[in-house]
Nucleic acid binder design. Structure first.
Lengths: 332, 332
DNA sequence: GATCTCAGTGTAATCGTTTACATTGTGCAT
DNA sequence: ATGCACAATGTAAACGATTACACTGAGATC
C-alpha cells in the first residue's frame, strides 16, 4: 500500500506538507504543491480513509437506516440520499432493519463504532428508536429523522404532510358521493400511520360524516396484515363503498384481494392509495394515487444532514413535503 | 468516548488483556475475563471499529456495487447479502452506479480507501469493470462477481443459468405453436444479455426455426430503450406472435406499449419474461415468468465471499442458479 | 542593523485498537 | 536446588493519516 510517507519522500517534502496539499490548505508554495501532486499521480496514491477517520474522529460515511429495503418507497429515498452523499465524497452505510427495533439498535451501535459522520434514520418505532438514537446525539453525531419523527428528540426532521394528503384523498372520495369510506392505516407509533388516520378523520368530520370504528383498520404497515383487514372490510354486513389505503405495499395486497373477489378497484369499490411505487408503472387499474416526493425526501434529508455537520448550533428544523393526488390517466 | 484504556484501568488490567478478552483469545484466566466483561458492561464500552480497522488493515465492512438500486432484482440480492453480513458482524457499504463505469470506478477506489474486507459487484460492463476490480484483487481484497461475470479475472462468480432459462422460455413458446418469436435482449457486454440471447437462439435452432435478425432486439437493459424496441417489433410488417423479454424492468415498458395498442399480453402476443419483480405482485396479466432466485444469489455470493476471506488459496468457483418458468396462476 | 511578521515547511504527537515480544510466576521434571 | 515449560499478563510499537507546535529565512519596519 502506498502511503503519504511514500509520496512525501518522492516529492522530497514532509508528510505534513503532503497532507496540506491534499486537503487544500493555503500555506503551500505552488511549486511544492505541484511536486506533491505529481508524486501522488505517479504513485497512484489513494488516501487511506480509515486512518483519516481515526485521526479526525469521524469517517466520511453516513449511516442510513431504513425499515424495509424491499419497499420501493425507501429505496427511492436512499437514491436521493446517495446522490448528495457522493457529491460530498461520502459513502453510505445502508442498514435494513425489517422493522425490528432490536436489529435497529444493533445497527446504531455498529454505525457508531464506524464513526459515521451522520445518521439518517427512518425509525421502526418513534419511541423505541429514540433510545439508541439518543446515544448517537450524545456522541455529537448529527441525525436526521426521515419520514418518521422521533419522540422527545431535538433533531432535524423531514416528513410528508400526511394529514393534508390523507384529508385530500378522503375528500376526493366524499366529493364523489361516498359516505361509507374505509381506511387501512398504519400504526399509531409511526408518524405516517398516526397522521394519515388523522387526515381521514378530519375530512369525515369536516363533512359531518360520523366515524364508524368498524371502517378504521389499524395495521403495522406490513402487507400480510393489510390483506386480512381488506377481507374484514369487504366481509362487513355493510361494506364501505370507498377505501383509503395508507401505503403502497398494503395496496398491492388489497388489490389482490379485490381480484380474487372479482371486484374492480374503481367501479365496485372506489380506491385511493398512497405511493406511486410498484403499482403505477405496471398498468394496473386507474384509481388515483397520493404521490410522495420520495427522491426529494431523501435528497433533502441528506442536505440537512450536511448542513448540520457544518453548523451544529442552529435549532433543529422540520421540513414537510406536500403530496399530490394524481389521477392515473396522467401517467400514461 | 470510552476506550479500552478506560476498561483496562477499571478492570485493573492492561489494554492487551482487555483486547484478548474481547476477541476471545484463550490465555486469559476466567477470573480476569469476568472482571473485564464486567467493566465493559459497566462503562457501556463499544469498540472503535475504525481503530481496529486501521490496526488489522481491514474493516468489517463489505462493499456492494450494483448498477441500479431502483431495480428490485438487485435490491433483493442486496437483501440476501445483508443477512449474511450481519451474521458475521459486518456492515454493507452500498454503492449504486446507475450503470456508469466511471461512477463505478470512483466507488471502487472509495471502497478500497475504506479498507473493505471484501467486494461483491454486479458489474456495469464485463470488460470495463475489470480494470478497477483488478486493483482490488491486487490489494488482496476478496471479490465476488454477481449476476455478471468479469472478463479475464479469476474471481468467485455467482450467476443465473441464463442460457437454460432463455432456452426453456423460448421452447415454451415454440411448444405453443409460435414460430415467429421476438426477443428483447440485453447488451453483449453483460453476461445475462449475451447468454439469454444465446439460449433463445439455441432453442430456435433446436427446432429448425431460422433466425430472423429483425426479431432480435439488443438493448442496454434500460427500460426506455425497451419501449422503442417493442414498438419496432410491433410495427414490423409481419410482427412476432411470441415475445421473450429479458428483464423485469423492460417488461414493464413492453406491457405499457401493449396497453396503448390495446393488445393483450397473452391472447394477442404470447409474452414470456424474466423476473418476478414488480410485476408478479401487482395483478397484471398472467403471462409466464422466468423466476430467478434473487435472494439466494445474494446470499450465496456473500457466503462465498466470507469463505474466501478465510481461505484465499483455493481456486475460484462459479455457481450457477437454475431458474423456474412459472405460470402466473401458481402465484395466486 | 535589530526586531518583527509571516509564509512555508518540518517534527512529532495523536487517534484507539491489536499484537509481537518481554516478563512474571507457578508447577514439574531432573 | 536448578532449569524448563507454559499459562497469564504487561509493555510498547505499530497501522496511516492529521495537526499543534516549532522552526527557518526573507522582507518590512523602525
Amino acid at each position: 500500500m502506498v502511503t503519504v510517507k511514500d509520496v512525501a519522500s518522492l516529492a522530497g517534502v514532509s508528510t505534513a506538507t503532503v497532507s496540506r496539499v491534499l486537503n487544500g490548505y493555503p500555506n503551500v508554495s505552488d511549486e511544492t504543491a505541484a511536486r506533491v501532486t505529481r508524486a501522488v499521480a505517479q504513485l497512484g496514491y489513494r488516501p487511506n480513509r480509515v486512518a483519516r477517520s481515526l485521526r479526525v474522529q469521524t469517517s466520511q460515511a453516513i449511516g442510513v437506516i431504513i425499515p424495509d429495503i424491499q419497499n420501493n418507497f425507501f429505496v427511492s429515498i436512499v437514491r436521493g440520499i446517495e446522490d448528495v452523499a457522493i457529491a460530498h465524497n461520502h459513502i453510505l452505510l445502508l442498514c435494513n432493519t425489517d422493522d425490528h427495533p432490536a436489529r435497529e439498535e444493533n445497527y446504531v451501535d455498529l454505525l457508531l463504532g464506524e464513526g459515521i459522520a451522520g445518521l439518517i434514520i427512518c425509525a421502526s418505532d418513534e419511541k423505541q428508536s429514540s433510545v439508541p438514537v439518543r446515544r448517537v446525539i450524545e456522541q455529537a453525531v448529527p441525525v436526521v429523522a426521515l419520514d418518521r419523527a422521533l419522540s422527545d428528540l431535538e433533531v432535524d426532521t423531514v416528513l410528508t404532510d400526511n394529514v393534508a394528503a390523507s384529508r385530500e384523498a378522503t375528500e376526493y372520495l366524499i366529493a364523489r358521493g361516498h359516505q361509507r369510506i374505509g381506511v387501512i392505516a398504519g400504526p399509531d407509533y409511526l408518524t405516517p400511520g398516526r397522521e394519515r388516520r388523522q387526515g381521514y378523520e378530519q375530512a369525515l368530520a369536516a363533512h359531518g360524516i360520523p366515524l364508524d370504528p368498524a371502517l378504521i383498520r389499524v395495521t403495522d404497515f406490513r402487507p400480510s396484515q393489510a390483506r386480512e383487514e381488506a377481507r374484514a372490510l369487504l366481509d362487513l354486513p355493510k361494506p364501505p363503498t370507498g377505501l383509503l389505503v395508507c401505503s403502497g405495499l398494503m395496496t398491492v395486497e388489497v388489490l389482490r384481494e379485490l381480484k380474487v373477489r372479482h371486484l374492480d378497484p374503481m367501479r365496485d369499490l372506489a380506491l385511493v392509495a398512497f405511493d406511486d411505487t410498484v403499482l403505477s408503472r405496471c398498468l394496473c387499474p386507474d384509481f388515483p394515487l397520493i404521490m410522495q416526493s420520495t427522491y426529494e425526501l431523501g435528497h433533502t434529508a441528506a442536505e440537512l444532514l450536511f448542513e448540520r455537520m457544518r453548523d451544529t448550533e442552529k435549532p433543529a428544523r422540520t421540513v414537510r413535503f406536500e403530496t399530490g393526488l394524481m389521477e392515473r390517466s396522467e401517467l400514461a
